[in-house]
C-alpha cells in the first residue's frame, strides 16, 4: 500500500505564513482528485489547527499522511498546553486575547470546528509541555489510490 508522508513546520506568531501548510495540503489532495467535500473539510481542519499553533502554541508542526483510504492530519506543538480540554472543546470558549479577536480570530470555534469536520478526532495536551491534535478523514479509497 502506498502512502505519502509530509511534515510542515508551523511557528508561533507567524501570521504572515499562516495557512500555507494547509493550502499546500489542499492542493496535494486536489491533484489526487479526491472528493472536493473531503478536501474542504480537511483544509478547514488544517487551517484551524495551524492557527491554534500560531496563536497559542509554541514551535510546532503539521504532519500529513495520505493513504488510499484516508487522510491523516497530526498537528502538534510544544506550547503552554491546554489546562481544561473539556472546556476548550466547548463552542464559543476562547482564551484568545482582545487583539486576536479584533483580527477575526478567537471566536472559540477552532477545536469544535475541527471535531465536527473530521471523521476521527483525538486531542491530548499537557500543561507546560504542549498539545497534539490528530484528525482522520476517510476518503473511501476512491479516486486514484494506486
Amino acid at each position: 500500500m502506498s502512502s505519502l508522508k509530509k511534515i510542515f513546520p508551523v511557528n508561533k506568531k507567524d501570521f504572515i505564513h499562516a495557512g500555507e501548510a494547509s493550502i499546500y495540503v489542499k492542493n496535494l489532495l486536489k491533484s489526487l482528485q479526491i472528493d472536493p467535500k473531503i478536501i474542504r473539510r480537511a483544509s478547514i481542519c488544517g487551517y484551524e489547527g495551524e492557527m491554534n499553533v500560531i496563536m497559542h502554541g509554541g514551535e510546532g508542526s503539521l504532519f500529513l499522511e495520505i493513504n488510499p483510504d484516508k487522510v491523516t492530519l497530526d498537528i502538534s506543538d510544544n506550547g503552554p498546553g491546554i489546562e481544561n480540554i473539556e472546556l476548550a472543546m466547548k463552542q464559543g470558549y476562547s482564551t484568545a486575547s482582545e487583539r486576536y479577536r479584533e483580527l477575526g480570530f478567537g471566536a472559540g470555534m477552532g477545536l469544535p470546528n475541527m471535531k465536527n469536520n473530521s471523521d476521527e478526532f483525538a486531542i491530548e495536551s499537557e500543561k507546560g509541555k504542549g498539545t497534539r491534535v490528530q484528525m482522520v478523514f476517510y476518503t473511501g479509497g476512491g479516486g486514484h489510490a494506486g
Binding site: S2, I66, A145
Partner: peptide, 10 residues
C-alpha cells in the same frame, strides 16, 4: 486534468 496517484505524488 489527469489525477496523480499517491505513488506519483511521492
Amino acid at each position: 486534468k489527469k489525477p496523480l496517484s499517491i505513488r506519483e505524488l511521492s
